[in-house]
């Protein structure tokens, strides 16, 4: 039985017990899960890069989604934020233009960076710069699309 299976808590408060459980997952399991999800993301990105069609966009979006779903729970809100933006962007349709493809690449690289550098919380100044750059790239893309 894993440490998680054996975990028990004498606390009366069910929310405190649940938070104890999440803290244990964070300490024991989450890093492995992220590595697993990141491997899936890399494979999905390679397939998308080779052939950016609907199926590969959906697979890539699902890979970003998996990371988004968990990051914030374990004090990695930037993982969730980047995942959120990626899923929204990919949900708009199949990226076709070089700038759209480049933006997907930026999101992929940003996810790699946050996970590789284990940037937790808001990431401080580095996190603010990173997210600022992603947001401005997306805003620019939107304004160029609107102008066409």
């Amino acid at each position: 039985m894993s440490a998680l299976g054996k975990m028990s808590s004498s606390r009366d408060d069910p929310v405190a017990r649940a938070n104890d459980y999440l803290a244990l997952v964070s300490a024991t399991e989450y890093a492995g899960w992220v590595r697993e999800d990141l491997s899936v993301l890399r494979a999905a990105y390679r397939a998308f890069h080779h052939s950016p069609d609907g199926d590969n966009v959906r697979a890539l979006s699902a890979a970003f989604q998996a990371l988004q779903d968990l990051g914030g729970t374990f004090d990695y809100p930037l993982i969730s934020e980047i995942g959120y933006m990626a899923v929204r962007f990919l949900g708009q349709g199949v990226p076709k233009s070089p700038k759209q493809l480049e933006f997907v690449h930026i999101l992929q690289e940003a996810m790699e960076l946050v996970i590789g550098q284990r940037i937790s919380g808001d990431g401080g100044e580095a996190g603010a710069v990173l997210m600022g750059n992603i947001r401005s790239a997306w805003d620019k893309l939107r304004s160029e699309t609107a102008a066409v």
Binding site: L4, S9, P14, V15, R17, A18, D20, Y21, L22, V25, E29, W33, E36, D37, A62, Q65, A66, D69, L70, T73
Partner: peptide, 18 residues
């Protein structure tokens, strides 16, 4: 939920709730 890790977390949290 299609995400195995999410199902694991949810099960753990729900069990912690009782």
């Amino acid at each position: 939920d299609g995400n195995r890790h999410m199902r694991t977390i949810l099960k753990g949290v729900l069990r912690a709730f009782g």
